[in-house]
Simulated scan of single mutants.
Amino acid sequence: MTLRLPAADGGTRTYEPRTEPLALTPGAPLTSRTVFAAAHVVADPRADVSPDAPAAVDWDATLAFRRHLWSHGLGVAEAMDTAQRGMGLDWPGAAELIRRSAAEARSVGGRVACGAGTDQITGGTLPEIRAAYEEQLALVEESGAQAVLMASRALAAAASGPDDYLDVYGHLLRQAAEPVILHWLGPVFDPALEGYWGSPDLDAATETFLAVVAAHPGKVDGVKVSLLDARRETALRRRLPAGVRCYTGDDFHYPELIAGDEHGFSHALLGVFDPLGPLAAEAVRVLDTGDTTGFRALLDPTVALARHLFRPPTRFYKTGVVLLAWLAGHQDHFTMVGGLQSARSLPHLARAYELADGLGLFPDPKLAEERMRNLLSLYGVDR
């Protein structure tokens, strides 16, 4: 059967879905790269919540999706900026997510890293921002998860220059119980973070970022860079102290950054690995054997889907991610916390389906086709 998919020009086009999925099964643990998927949360569509009420989460489906990722050898990046935080899930909800996900990781032997930020406050003085960070860092460490120190909107607004970043991050790193991941989230993901690290000039910001890392040997496991600039990430990666990893957060250039060059490579902490999980894990297993060409052959074709999902405004990429999770059968509805299922147009969603189906990402292509047909009918298309 065929589907009539809406096009960006207002017309429709005929698409014939594939009938067989890509055969992907859990395999050996990943060895050459550390790979986290920034996993989405599953909303509870049956909860009677208002737009201003805390998000209602389907905890069973949310944790089941994390078990799916762990089963393929991926780590889970939990309670991360843009993946869950700042766009529908408040700090109490994120704290519950951290506790539940960390406990689930222990029960199945999965790896989890959790974000610590300052989103329980919307502004404040530098001491108040430090205290907010401390509260979240303590909860993450108490849960037994690795901490990711996320960029803070409050700090971006309050800091007067690089010294304030050096002071706040230095204070946190000195008291961290275990090495953390530092996250540099660019304004393409969150416009409120423009000028982070004390300057809108990325070269100057990079120097401050690297100074934070260099001042605290042994307290930084790695840095996550989400600037969507492969050249800049590669240059920064080459300047990291020995033993400090670079986790790419570049959802546009991840194959080349993970493959690396003669000077090194990036590990990964990526939102796009939510829908690509099994395929990404298989690609890294190929890379584990030293077969870079085979790795690129598997992962390069996924970039078109990633660039589509993360097209501006990039912070709304989750809408396509949750659509694909529903089409793949990981949840039984297409709703999101904060009502963000409406953040992307129907032509955008249709193209995401088409690209994902072409890659063979849906375990049951027939189910995906039926659900996509239902969505199109809801919008008055394909009937």
Rank of each mutant, 00 (worst) to 15 (best):
T122Q: 09
G93K: 01
E282M: 14
D44F: 04
L172P: 02
A177N: 13
D274H: 08
A297S: 02
L126M: 15
T82H: 09
S377A: 13
P278W: 15
A192W: 11
R237W: 03
Y165C: 00
L228A: 14
E135I: 09
A38D: 15
R85C: 12
G198A: 02
G170A: 01
A23R: 04
P179T: 07
W91S: 15
G264C: 07
D203V: 09
H40F: 04
A235R: 10
Y254P: 02
K318R: 10
H330D: 12
Q331L: 15
A242P: 13
K219Y: 05
A204V: 09
L210W: 00
P45H: 01
A343H: 05
H267G: 06
H72Y: 05
A281Y: 01
E178K: 10
H68T: 11
E134I: 10
H216T: 06
D201W: 00
R99Y: 14
S50Q: 05
V140C: 00
H267Q: 13
A79L: 06
T12I: 06
S32V: 15
P278T: 06
A211R: 07
M336F: 11
H68N: 04
A8Q: 01
G161A: 02
A132K: 00
V303C: 10
H40V: 07
F265V: 15
A79V: 13
P17W: 03
L298T: 13
A55E: 08
A151G: 03
C114P: 04
Y165V: 00
V41S: 13
